[in-house]
Design a protein around this nucleic acid. Sequence first.
DNA 1: TAGATTGTTAATCGATTAACAATC
DNA 2: TAGATTGTTAATCGATTAACAATC
Lengths: 205, 205
Amino acid sequence: MKIPSPSIPRISLYYRVLLSLKDKDIISSQELSELTGCSAAQVRKDLAYFGQFGRPGSGYNVEVLKTELKNILGIDKDWDVALIGAGNLGSALLAYKGFRGQGFNIKYVFDNDRKKIGKLKQGIKVRDILELKKATKQIGINLAVVAVPQEAAQEVIDELVLSGIKAILNFAPIRPRVSEDIKVLNIDLSTELERLSYFLQRRKV
Amino acid sequence: MKIPSPSIPRISLYYRVLLSLKDKDIISSQELSELTGCSAAQVRKDLAYFGQFGRPGSGYNVEVLKTELKNILGIDKDWDVALIGAGNLGSALLAYKGFRGQGFNIKYVFDNDRKKIGKLKQGIKVRDILELKKATKQIGINLAVVAVPQEAAQEVIDELVLSGIKAILNFAPIRPRVSEDIKVLNIDLSTELERLSYFLQRRKV
DNA sequence: TAGATTGTTAATCGATTAACAATC
DNA sequence: TAGATTGTTAATCGATTAACAATC
């Protein structure tokens, strides 16, 4: 079956909400609706894409659902992550506890700055970006976070792809060109601010 | 007319691409398509929502289009921004040159950490978050970036709304509850990583 | 005039919502 | 059995694409 792409971030949201529940064994789509802001029909539909997890008349078993959603999202196991760019943003991401807590372990950090290479950041050695290819091939990492300046981004991403990386979270304000089988998600702060600017501007008219 | 919401980030993308053009007076929807990855029909449609900027037979005048898109996005003028949270992420955002370059000036920084309050960060004084209400009312800022820990986020956002803020870029991993007339965009790193995890997981099956 | 490309209408596609039979 | 809620089908809504007359 073809799953609508907006379902996946919603699955992630449902999972988050389930984690925050205390002393609740069963939850209905209606309750999940109230906790997430998604409609109850949408909750049921999203879940039904992946299986029959509920029990008509009562609802969903919270523990079962947590486990199922974890499996769907592929976070039943940990992922090793490579971080490219140890500047301000990269360092902030490295220090962010949310990642490790969610099972995403930044295991390798690369930079091209001689001053940073070889130093430790958050207990992880900063490697020369030239080692990139060797390193990822060796260790089989397939998830990378790119936090380098705009000018370097496409080149770094090309290199990552050559190194066997399959999924990239990109913070540089470009839409990198990659082959079909690579998944890139772009987080573009300027675009987000411009969306807010558009909203504020419109509001007045 | 009702404008599809995905159009706005695309407008932002078109604008970005136009900025990068050198020595080009006229551009066709076909060329913009190649540069952005959006279809030519979509480029024309997005632009047509806002006016008739092109010239049949030739294309769009680059300078004219730049100006028009700036107006649409509301970035023909600068915006003052308040940053809440001067931790790792907040500091990285503060140091990020892209914002200022795009006309988003972080003018106020707030934190609740006694150790940070009163100190300068990137030349900007860190204020006590308790001053928030007073400060935003006084100065008429209506755009804020929230980079505080999850536990503090909803409270901070409530406070921002009371202070008259109308648009919020939120980095905390919650879906804050706000009234209808407030626009919140959430940047949720865990969800993005989970989308990538889902992709990687699926790929194998 | 011939060629090119816009702006717009109609057709298609995809996602969300509504409704309800099946189930507990 | 009566009440509640799922899973699923059909209806609706919204966004994208295709096609082409109008325009330069």
